[in-house]
Design a binder for these strands. Structure first.
Length: 429
RNA sequence: GGAGAGAUGGCUGAGUGGUCGAAAGCGGCCGCCUGCUAAGCGGUUGUGGGGGUGUUAAGCUCCCACCCCGGGUUCGAAUCCCGGUCUCUCCGCCA
């Protein structure tokens, strides 16, 4: 959510930002209009309440019965006026809030301008795709042949976009999760969190998934709860409606969680293999920090995510999103992509395994996460940052495809072997 | 799932219709005092919104809302009534 004061005081600046991300700048004028109406009603209601408060206090002191009754009638009339203004005021507040919740974040000045994903910028590419002396197979063939991936039975259980990992396949995924968690906890200084995978609506409003993107979420209507699409949601909301001490910042959390997405908008896309499922696992890093440090904290979070790619010894690249491809909540965003040599239509594909972004105070304002810069100072909103470290099925895909051997076996990356009980390769049978 | 108790400021905890944004204590901050520390003394200490003044600053000032949330009664609600959420205790069930 944008600061209404910023919109009010620098409407042209906000419009320019909205234009860059492809949003309608007219939203600014709409919000300003609603805000003016809201403030008029607010002023009116508050002065009437002041009158009633003063009048009511007086009634308490009056002794003359007739005088009291006269005063009561007067106050009753004011009360009626207040009630009717309050109806309008509540509506105005709701309208304004509603509109504000649907306005995207503004891009940082450094974000390259572009209309859509075609104008994203590859920042760097690390590692060389391996030269195969045989035709590399896609992961769904490798997995099926090794008996570690069963897409048919996943579909039998739960429908399309579900799969089952078995034996060493399941073990490998579990090993990757443990490996990543330990790396971030021990080497990068994150605190591990195990959050609920089911949350209340306000958490999703806090992170910006609602009200706009509800159709990508699974929901339990019975208890009015939602399945999380990422651990970002519960972890960011950990400190919702809190005022943190400046000395507590930055807060660095890493969480493993299952993620659930309906993927209705991507029907027909990525149908082959396990690249895009309704349920997947992810290790997610979340930071809360001061505005002054957020840009540097984003860079270090990206470095932490990259460290996973490096440790797994697979080619990867970092892509910066242009203004037109930023998400609703991001002010700046970088994707990490692992190379998968046999995915895609023609000989390999970069798989998005992490999306690292700074949300400035956009989420913090929605979730009410503040900090006190100095003892006694006015609270300010923190900046939130997050990124995967990394997303699981895709990392698994990359391992299977990059580390496959001519005989159909898959070598386990060295860094993961301790988490696989020392197993060095997965073989058929 | 059944029965009961409760939810007040950073914390503990008073307050049952007006003078309560809320006693007291603790903690925090500022100052005084004191070889140092501790103790002591004085002051101060919630959040949000709106108006005025001011350079769309700092500051000053006035008002409103908030005692879990949402309704209701009343001239007036932390206080009374209804609904909800959460916590605790006991019973049942259970990985």
């Amino acid at each position: 959510m944008l600061d209404i004061r910023l919109i009010r005081e620098q409407p042209d600046f906000v419009k320019e930002g909205l234009r860059k991300v492809g949003a309608d700048p007219a939203l600014v004028d709409q919000v300003i209009e609603l805000d003016a109406r809201r403030r008029t009603l607010e002023t009116e209601a508050s002065s009437l309440r002041a009158q009633r408060n003063a009048g009511s206090k007086e009634i308490g002191r009056l002794k003359d019965e007739a005088e009291r009754e006269a005063r009561k009638a007067e106050m009753r009339a004011i009360g009626d006026r207040i009630a009717s203004i309050e109806v309008d005021l509540k509506a105005a507040e709701a309208d304004q809030q509603n509109l504000l919740l649907n306005i995207p974040n503004l891009p940082l000045p450094e974000v390259p301008y572009g209309a859509d994903e075609r104008e994203n910028v590859v920042i760097k590419t690390v590692g060389e795709p391996r030269a195969f002396d045989f035709e590399p197979k896609p992961h769904w063939e490798i997995g099926a042949a090794l008996g570690i991936l069963d897409i048919e039975r996943g579909t039998k259980l739960s429908g399309s976009r579900f799969y089952v990992l078995k034996g060493q396949g399941a073990a490998l995924q579990r090993a990757l999760i443990s490996f990543m968690l330990d790396l971030h906890i021990r080497k990068h200084g994150y605190t591990e969190v195990y959050p609920p995978a089911v949350v209340k609506e306000h958490c999703l409003v806090g992170t910006g998934n609602l009200p706009k993107f509800g159709d990508n979420l699974y929901r339990d209507i019975e208890d009015d709860l939602w399945l999380v699409p990422t651990a970002e949601v519960p972890v960011t909301n950990l400190h919702r409606e809190e005022i943190l001490d400046a000395s507590d910042l930055p807060i660095k959390y890493v969480a493993y969680s299952p993620c659930f997405r309906r993927e209705r908008m991507s029907a027909g896309r990525d149908v082959r293999g396990i690249k895009r499922g309704h349920q997947f696992d992810k290790v997610e890093m979340v930071k809360l920090c001061t505005p002054e440090t957020s840009r540097a904290e984003l860079d270090s979070l990206i470095a932490d995510a990259e460290d996973v790619c490096r440790a797994l010894e697979m080619p990867y690249r970092v892509v910066q999103m242009c203004t037109g491809d930023l998400s609703f909540v991001s002010a700046i965003k970088f994707d990490l992509e692992l190379w998968a040599p046999a995915c895609g239509d023609e000989g390999g594909e970069w798989l998005e395994v992490s999306s690292c972004a700074c949300f400035t105070d956009f989420q913090a304002r929605r979730a009410g996460i503040r900090y006190r810069p100095e003892p006694g100072a006015r609270p300010e909103f923190v900046h939130t940052i997050n990124g995967s470290g990394l997303a699981l099925p895709r990392t698994l895909i990359a391992v299977l495809e990059n580390y496959q051997n001519a005989d159909g076996s898959v070598t386990i990356p060295e860094a993961v072997r301790p988490y696989m009980g020392g197993v060095e390769r997965i073989c058929a049978g």
